[in-house]
């Protein structure tokens, strides 16, 4: 269930993307900003990781071989243990229907590639704070209005 104290090291962010370059970029930047990171190469790995060590947030790519990002989000939402874990999509898919789908799956964020890796940590921290404040619903609703 969530991280410990405010500035205490929060639970790691689970980074899911099949592109090694993206994983590297994200990890370097997040860790550089003080956020611990766990990596998964595809959906199956991601789900296994989640069970192994509950992350504070899942940064989820969509286009992956085998179990794709949508699938992962579905499964997380279906499981009572993992339902509360906030999911932020990180995707090259930029169409409105993709955002809508993300919204339906209960996501709290949608980052479109290419993205500025320097802002990634900030975005994630923001999301975590607001979730902690109970603004999860709002975040979810905001998905459809961002564009």
């Amino acid at each position: 269930m969530g991280g410990g104290g405010t500035q205490a090291t929060p639970a790691p962010v689970l980074l899911v993307d099949d592109e090694p370059a993206i994983r590297t970029i994200c990890r370097v930047n997040l860790e550089g900003d003080g956020l611990p990171v766990l990596e998964a190469r595809d959906g199956a790995e991601a789900l296994a990781e989640v069970r192994r060590q509950r992350p504070s947030l899942v940064l989820l790519d969509v286009m992956m071989p085998g179990v794709d990002g949508w699938n992962v989000a579905e499964q997380l939402a279906a499981d009572a243990h993992t339902r509360d874990i906030p999911v932020v999509f990180l995707s090259a898919r930029a169409a409105p229907e993709d955002r809508l789908r993300a919204q339906e799956l209960g996501a709290v964020g949608y980052v479109v590639k290419p993205f500025d890796p320097l802002e990634l940590a900030g975005t994630i921290r923001n999301v975590l704070e607001r979730v902690a404040r109970g603004e999860r619903e709002q975040l979810n609703r905001d998905l459809s209005s961002e564009g």
């Binding site: 592109e19 993206i22 090259a92 320097l118």
Partner: peptide, 29 residues
């Protein structure tokens, strides 16, 4: 068009991300 733009986005994200990261002065790489 969707596919193409999508296909272009991922390598762009990598190029941009890599370049941005390289330019960070606050992290020792």
């Amino acid at each position: 068009v969707a596919t193409a733009s999508h296909e272009l986005r991922t390598p762009l994200a990598a190029v941009y991300g890599a370049a941005r990261t390289l330019r960070r002065t606050d992290i020792e790489l």
